[in-house]
Structure formats: C-alpha cells, structure tokens
Design a protein around this nucleic acid. Structure first.
Length: 189
DNA sequence: TGCACGATGAAC
DNA sequence: TTCATCGTGCAC
C-alpha cells in the first residue's frame, strides 16, 4: 500500500477519477483508522464545466478548488450533508473529483453509499476543507498489486441544470460493487 | 440585507 | 414523489 503522491492528483481530472476507483480512503481520528475502498466517483473538469462549482468563478467557498492538487474540498449541500472531493490538475485549474461511494473495510459501520452518507460514516466535515491528502488526517492509498476493476460510467447525478454538460459521462464506478449509490440508468459501454 | 436554489437522503 | 433545512452567490 502506497500513499498517492502529489503527482497522482496533478493530472487530467478524468484520468484521476478513473484511477481513484479501487483505491483506499483512510481517515485517521483520535488514533482510530477508518478505511473504505472507493467504488464511485464523479469528475468536475474546471470552470468551463457548467456543473462544477468553479464555473461560478473564484469565491470563498471554491477557493480550495483553485489551489494545489491533492487537497480536500469539502462543502455542505442542501444545508445538511457534506460532500468530499479531491482537487486535481495544476494550481488555478479548479477541477476536482467527487467521491460518491465507498465499500466499508475497517472501522466503518454506517452506510457509505452516497456522498453525504460516506462523509457522515467517516466523520468528514468542513473542518477538513483544504486538508492536504498527503497528510495524516485524511489520505488515499493504492495497492499496486490489485487488479484493475471493471469500470462502468454514466451521467453525473443532480446536475440537470448544467445544459450539455449534464449529459457527459463523467460518473465512474466499479461495476460489480455492491456499494454503489444507485439512481440514473447506468450505461456501461 | 434578502432570497432562490442546490454535486442529498429518507420517509411516505 | 415530497420534504427537511441552510450555506452560497447574486440581486438589490
């Protein structure tokens, strides 16, 4: 197991999203380690992507998206749930990958099928906004020996307002996982 | 300062 | 299908 490097995150967002499938999200808190395998993600490509928060420009909320890759972008949605993203590409590019579902592996008992639920299960909230994923509190590890998962793709969830960007197949998931946050009719190509 | 609206989840 | 519930961004 190897912690993902800055270089891993500083690449094409779609590629980072695909490569994150099957990796391990590790949350350290009070000496307790919680681990989940990432099985579902969405790519948000930058300010030109009308579904991305950065499409509204640089604001207090999206500041982290415009910063260095390999950092956590955590925001609150619908006034009650947090969503966890990893910042990708170069500084100023403002792209990120939303982590949508995990397979619970270690010290995780709550439901992790959905972006809000996985944050609750791993106690991820806005205190972690801006946290460095190369640090201790929250990080992601890859097992280089592991087989590449079979990947499915679909349109992203809840972005109908984003005009032609809503149809882009930028949601990726491990096809045979039992821990996906269902919803749209999945296409597999 | 006010207001419309979500990268959701759970209940009905 | 509906609703709970509030931070954000933008209009005024």
């Amino acid at each position: 197991m190897e912690k993902l490097s800055r270089r891993f995150y500083a690449r094409d967002t779609k590629q980072v999203a695909l490569d994150l499938l099957g990796t391990y999200l590790v949350r350290m808190q009070n000496g307790v380690r919680r681990v989940g395998r990432i099985v579902e993600v969405e790519a948000y490509l930058g300010p030109h992507d009308l579904a991305a928060h950065s499409a509204r420009g640089r604001t207090a909320r999206t500041e982290v998206m415009f910063g260095q890759p390999g950092h956590a972008y955590v925001y609150m949605i619908y006034g009650m749930h947090c969503c966890f993203n990893v910042v990708t590409e170069r500084v100023g590019h403002a792209s990120a990958v939303l982590i949508r579902a995990l397979e619970p592996l270690e010290n995780v008992t709550a439901n992790t099928r959905g972006p809000g639920l996985l944050c609750r299960a791993l106690d991820i909230d806005r205190r972690l906004n801006g946290a460095d994923l190369l640090g201790e509190e929250i990080s992601i590890f890859a097992d280089k020996q592991a087989a590449r998962p079979m990947i499915g793709r679909s349109a992203r969830i809840g972005v109908a307002y984003a005009r032609h960007w809503a149809a882009r197949l930028l949601r990726f998931y491990v096809r045979d996982s039992a821990y996906l946050s269902r919803r749209p009719k999945d296409r597999t190509e």
